[in-house]
Simulated assay, not measured.
Amino acid sequence: MQPRFVIVPAVPIEQESFRAGTRFYATTVSGGFDIYDNQEKMRLKPSYQGKEEAMAHCARMNAEDSSSPVNCPAYLMQT
């Protein structure tokens, strides 16, 4: 079963843009890492700069979530 919270790369942040001829180019920097909630289908804030920090917070959130009751039909529950 897939965990509820997973780590995903954050959206890159545009630092500056410049024009070369008729095209515009943007330089970007990594936005770090976000935690994605598979149940709510959304990214959670804040973003984390380091992957280790994001992994630690994600593991803590998954541990807290697994202690709560599972809301699913009885035929899907393991016996």
Rank of each mutant, 00 (worst) to 15 (best):
F5K: 03
F18K: 08
V11I: 11
G50Q: 12
K51R: 09
K45I: 08
P46A: 10
P3M: 05
S17Y: 14
V70P: 02
R43N: 11
A56S: 09
Y48G: 00
K41S: 10
I7L: 14
G21F: 15
I13R: 12
G31L: 03
T28P: 00
E64S: 14
V8R: 10
T27P: 05
R19H: 15
M1C: 08
V6G: 04
C58G: 02
P9L: 11
E14L: 03
R19Q: 15
E14F: 02
V8Y: 05
P12I: 01
Y36I: 01
R43G: 02
S67T: 02
A54W: 00
R19C: 15
T22R: 15
L44M: 10
V6I: 11
Q39G: 03
V29A: 11
A63Q: 15
A26P: 08
R60N: 14
S30K: 08
V11N: 06
M77W: 13
F33T: 00
P9C: 09
P12D: 04
D37P: 01
R4C: 03
E16D: 07
K41Y: 11
C72V: 15
M1K: 14
T27F: 14
Y48K: 01
V8F: 05
I7C: 13
P46I: 10
A10R: 07
E16M: 12
G21W: 14
A59I: 05
Q2W: 01
A10P: 07
A74Y: 04
S68G: 06
F5N: 05
F5G: 02
D34G: 03
S68N: 12
S66L: 10
R43L: 06
D65R: 11
I13T: 11
R43H: 08
M61Q: 07
Q2C: 04
T79P: 11
S67E: 09
G31H: 04
P69N: 03
P46Y: 08
Q2N: 01
F33G: 00
Y25R: 09
M77P: 04
Q2A: 04
L44N: 00
N62E: 07
G50A: 13
S30C: 02
Q2K: 09
Y75T: 07
